[in-house]
Each structure stands twice: as C-alpha cells, then as structure tokens.
C-alpha cells in the first residue's frame, strides 16, 4: 500500500506499508493457547510443509509444537 501524507504547508511525503489482503489464516491470541486456523480448513500453518504462514500451536509464548 502506498500512503501519501501532505501537511498544511504543502510538504508531502510517502511511505510503503506492507499488508496482507484477504488473509487466508488467522491466529487465536486471546489467551495462553495460540492456534492458527486457515481458510483451507486446517490448523497450524497455511503453507505446509514450509510452515511460515501462521503460528502453529503454541502455549504461553513458547515455540510451535506442531510438525
């Protein structure tokens, strides 16, 4: 996303903001258990076997315990 800011004195600048459109996964972060759910119907990661998209299954801030 390209974000342009213009001040009253005419000064203008821009910055690029990275966003994910129409996300295919989301992670529950409401308590000590964090689990990623995906639009493909699975839990853990949205890109098995790379396992970079998502948090997996974590407890109390620890590492993922899946795969």
């Amino acid at each position: 996303m390209h974000l342009t800011s213009t001040l009253d004195d005419g000064y203008s600048d821009f910055q690029w903001i990275s966003t994910v459109g129409n996300p295919t996964y989301a992670t529950t972060l409401g308590n000590k258990v964090a689990v990623t759910v995906t639009s493909a119907g699975n839990l853990g990661f949205a890109d098995y076997p790379t396992n970079a998209k998502g948090k997996g299954f974590r407890y109390d801030g620890g590492n993922s315990m899946l795969f």
């Binding site: 529950t28 972060l29 409401g30 308590n31 000590k32 258990v33 689990v35 407890y59």
Partner: peptide
C-alpha cells in the same frame, strides 16, 4: 473461541 479469564486461559 478464546477466553482470557484465568480459569479458561489454557484452551481454545
């Protein structure tokens, strides 16, 4: 569903 109360913080 995630609940943040202490009694329910260990499950989803």
């Amino acid at each position: 569903y995630s609940h943040s109360a202490t009694a329910d913080e260990d499950f989803v």
